[in-house]
Computed example of a mutant assay.
Amino acid sequence: MRVLAAMSGGVDSAVAAARAVAAGHDVTGVHLALSRNPQTYRTGARGCCTVEDARDARRAADVIGIPFYVWDMAEQFHSDVVDDFVAEYAAGRTPNPCLRCNEKIKFAAVLDRAVALGFDAVVTGHHARLGPDGLLRRSVDLAKDQSYVLAVLNRAQLDRAMFPLGDSTKAQVRAEAARRGLAVADKPDSHDICFIADGDTRGFLADRLGNAPGDVVDATTGAVVGRHDGAYAFTVGQRRGLGIGVPAPDGRPRYVLSITPKSNTVTVGPAEALDVDTVTGVRPVWIGGDQPTGPVEAMLQVRAHGSTTPAVVELTDAGMHAQLHRPVRGVAAGQAMVAYRPDPAGDVVLGSATIAG
């Protein structure tokens, strides 16, 4: 097959491209230039969005022996990922930009362009598996598994995707990169948001949304216990940096329970007030076989790198509804709810939706 390899400049995408070549595919490498000004994004060997990353990707393509191009997708990335990130926080939600980038950029814009150019599939360095049955599964390396951020993809996108690293641990990927002579073998992983250069999400949002003072209110007493400079700086479940000047009557820590942009209020309370036993999502995607006509048992994950909880999941006219068998804490609107098949392995993705709030 003719395959387009998305090469970020990191070790994972380089090894994924090399494996695609080894499997006999006709591979072309492409690096996505996502920053309007690469110097304003994170610098250093971090694996995404910088000038250094483009150079690392080119060198890896040279070693592998494949053609290499750079595609400028900065405007679309800014519109679909960065602007969406800011708008979601302004609306009191907590977005996951990696989910949006996979959905809107890597497996929409890039895949559409690849197909138009005659490519059969796009290969990436994501740690996930696609079996012969076409079902999306967790990586064998659960610590690096990225099926959660890929669960937003639809069936047509998955049918043209390749994830060669899903059967390997990260240590095995690095060792293979070293054997292949790839200079990125020891390059650090990227953990932060790629378009926030200094890692200061609160400062990034403040620059774009401005100063917006408001009240921090105790859910139990209704009393104002503090002030904030912008409700967008908080997320559900947050404990530190709340700006509370009045100790709780019981002396226990308070957590962010909700964010209300309309009144610019952050509501705080005890940890147990975070418990929820139902979760509702919008824009559902079902990829685990035929779409169910009624409730199904599943294992539900509601945050990246979080654990799963048994639940009954049902698709409705409004989206996806999950009734949890036991409460979970810190469910934040804007994140994804991802349902996995409830078999012993628990690694097959059934579907996903964006948590409403």
Rank of each mutant, 00 (worst) to 15 (best):
S8V: 00
V15N: 04
A22Y: 00
T28Y: 03
H31Q: 03
L32V: 12
R36Q: 07
A54N: 02
R55I: 03
A60Q: 12
A61Y: 06
D62T: 14
G65M: 14
I66C: 06
I66V: 15
D72P: 15
M73K: 10
V82Y: 09
A91F: 04
N96Q: 11
C98T: 05
C98R: 04
E103P: 05
I105M: 14
I105S: 06
A109L: 14
F119G: 02
D133A: 09
L136F: 14
R138A: 08
V149F: 02
R160Y: 08
R160F: 08
F163W: 14
F163H: 15
V173F: 10
R174K: 13
A178V: 09
S190A: 09
F195Y: 13
D198W: 04
D200T: 10
G203P: 13
G203Y: 08
F204Q: 05
R208F: 05
L209C: 06
G210W: 12
N211M: 13
A212I: 04
T220F: 12
T221F: 08
A223L: 13
V224F: 08
D229P: 12
D229M: 04
G230V: 01
G237C: 07
L242R: 11
P247C: 09
A248T: 03
P249C: 04
D250A: 10
G251I: 07
G251C: 10
P253Q: 04
T260H: 15
T267G: 02
E272F: 02
D277T: 14
T278D: 02
V279K: 00
T280V: 12
E297N: 14
E297F: 10
T308A: 13
A311W: 09
H325S: 11
R326L: 08
V328W: 13
A332S: 15
A333Q: 09
Q335F: 11
V338Y: 06
A339L: 05
P342L: 06
P342M: 08
A345P: 07
G346C: 07
A353L: 13
I355P: 15
